[in-house]
Every structure is written in C-alpha cells, then in structure tokens.
Simulated scan of single mutants.
Amino acid sequence: MTAKLLIAAGGGGDAITTAMVHAALHGDDAPALILTYAWERLVVDPVPGPRRRTDFTGTERVGDQVHLITPGSAPIPPAGSLLPRLAADLRPALGLIDPYEGTVGLALQIAQAAEYCGADRVEIVDVGGDVAADGSEPTLRSPLGDALVVAACLRTGIPAAVHIAGPGLDSEVPEAVLLPRLGLPEFTLTAAHTNCVGNVFDWHPSEASALLVAAARGIRGVCGTRDAPDPVVLSPASAHVYRLPLARVLEINRLAQALDGTADLAEAEEASRSVCGFSEVARERERARQRCAARGSTRREGGAPDAASPYQRFVEWEQRTAATGIQYVTTRRFAEELGLSQGALTALRNQLKNTAPARSAPPLWQLHSDGQLTREKS
C-alpha cells in the first residue's frame, strides 16, 4: 500500500490530534497509518503503564512487528482501551506501538510500518509540546512516550519531522516556555480541520485534544481541566502547529538522548528517573494502588447517595468554579469532580444542550460568570 505514516507521540488521545494534523497537511482523504500507544489514563485503563500487542484480541497483523487496531479489536480484561472505538471514528488506520522493548524494539516497529505504508518519511505529532521538554520543567508529568518515539525514529534512519500542536494545552510545559523553542508556526488549524474528528469528544476523555479543537474553532479564554495546578488559557497560539526537525528536538530533549539504545521499558524508566527525577509508570502504579484503596474504603463506609439531581449539582459546582475566573471547562473535569456515572453524564449533557444551549461551546462547556467567553473567527 501507499500511505502517509504518522506517529502520535503521547498517549491514546494524541491520535485525535494526529488525525487533525494529517487532514491539514495532506487532506482528509489521503490514506494514512497513525502509530499510537495504548497508554491511556487510569479512568480508561485501570492497569498502569502502556499496553502490549498481546494485551489485545482482534488486531490485524500486517507484519511480525505491526498490528493494526480495528473496531473489532478489544483489550483483554482487566486492561481497558478506547483505541478500538477510536479506530471506528477516525479515517486513518491505527497501528499499535509497543514500548516494552525500548527504543530498539520501537525502531523495528516503525521501520516495518514505513515499509508497509511505502513511506519514505515519518511525521511525529505531539499535542501540548512536552516532546520539546528538556526534562527540568517542574510541571512535566509524562515525557517518556514522546521521548521514546523521538529516539526510536532517530535509530531507524528514516527522515522525520516533529509537529507540535497547541503549545501548553496538555498543562505540562507552559506556552511561554515553549514558544521561544519552536520558532514560527508551520500553519494554523481551523474549524474545517476539526471535521475529521466529528463527535469523538461526545465519548472520548482527551482534554488536550479537546482544547486544541476548541482553539481551532476560535474559542479563546480561561479553561479549567482536571488534575492540573493552573487553568489553561486558550490564546491565538493555541491553534498553531509548529514543525521542528528531528535533530532539533533531540538537541532539546535530554531524555530522548538518554533513551537511545534502550532495550526494555524498565531501562527506559531508569533513564527517566536519571534525567527527569521520576518515572511516570511508577507514578501510575502508585495512583492505581490509591484508587483501589479508595474504592475499598468507599464500599466499607457506604453512605447515602447525593439527593440533588446532577443538574442541580452542576449549577452549584458551576457557580463555585466560575468564581475562580474559569470561563469554560472540559466534560471530563465536571464529570469527575461531580462523580457522575456514564448514564448520569449523558443525561446531564442532553439537559444542558436542551435547556441551557448558551453553555455549549463544543467540545467545551461555557460557565455562567460576569466575564463571557470570546469566540473569534477562524
């Protein structure tokens, strides 16, 4: 086959951004394969760390190193993954990359995928910009996946470039820190480029990609996401995509330098501890342990359910949150902070759309406050 080869450098949500960047670079209809990790948040996958090829059933094998995720694929319990559903909603094919053999194994997978596609170059895509982190940033949380991809691509010898979309939108490296490293933007995403992700955010929890879609649709202002110390400000730069040569990213990314030649994920974790001072996989293991303990405590303590309706609880939560200066939020933030089940969330979203349409700023939600969110034309 002849197809473009792209790699979503971060977790499972980066495949959404990669589809948009592909649409902007090559058009919606251009055949493409997006390589992506099955490395998703614990709310999706309760098993810490990335998933391997052997953690799925129903993949389409197109080589001993390359397995495609299809709508008929499924994670083997207790693991979870949204990639099969994403494969049904995105036009590019999705291929699974498995980091458990370090950069050595990843390089073999990328090289075989390039051969399968007939591609003579690789486009790496990262939403937020932590691929251009040097490892010292105090807010850095998940640099390992991106750095592994960069180091592995260097090892293949295949020409590659890195596209950074929405600097700062993942709340890891602030926009003000990133922009001096990135130079001039390659292009700006527009509302038309978001058509290819359709209604993905009706069910997918990715926040960074949701913010990028909002920015491309002209939304500007202060947005609250979950589990981030500060809100994200959607600025004119939030819809920009920047292109850096692979060599330039390697100059910046000290973790990618340290990962060259690693042969397993444990070795890669040690490199991350050495350069960044932590292992995100170890952090996930600890969070998973805490979640398990919290669930056990809740079952033991019981307690009466909240009698207020989800809508009433949302309105009260909205007033408190808007008072802090936040103008709009992701679905994931209010769903998790209100502790909504999937059924309650669906009902609340429908009620908000029907009775309070002014709150809807897809894929975000506007909060009622004195300062109104500004919508700019793309």
Rank of each mutant, 00 (worst) to 15 (best):
L6Q: 02
D14M: 02
I34L: 08
W39P: 03
R41C: 01
V44P: 06
P48S: 03
G49T: 07
T59S: 07
E60T: 15
V62K: 05
V62G: 04
G63W: 01
Q65I: 04
Q65E: 13
V66S: 04
L68R: 08
P71Y: 10
S73E: 04
P75G: 10
P75S: 15
P78W: 06
L83K: 07
R85F: 07
R91G: 07
R91Q: 14
L94F: 06
G95Q: 09
G95V: 10
I97Q: 05
P99Y: 06
P99K: 02
T103A: 08
T103N: 09
V104W: 06
L106I: 11
A107H: 05
I110V: 06
A111E: 10
E115L: 06
G128H: 01
D130F: 02
E137N: 14
L144A: 03
A151V: 10
C153G: 03
A160T: 11
A161T: 13
H163Q: 06
H163M: 08
L169F: 11
V173F: 10
A176Q: 12
L178E: 05
H193N: 14
H193S: 08
G198L: 13
E207W: 01
A214P: 07
G221M: 11
G221V: 06
L234A: 08
A237W: 00
A239V: 10
G261K: 09
A266Y: 05
E269L: 00
C276S: 10
F278L: 05
R285G: 01
R285M: 06
R287E: 14
D306H: 14
S309A: 13
V315K: 12
V315M: 09
T324V: 09
V329Y: 02
E337T: 05
E337K: 14
L338G: 11
G339S: 12
G339T: 15
G343Q: 09
A344W: 04
A344S: 15
L348R: 06
R349V: 15
P357A: 09
S360Y: 15
P363I: 03
L364K: 05
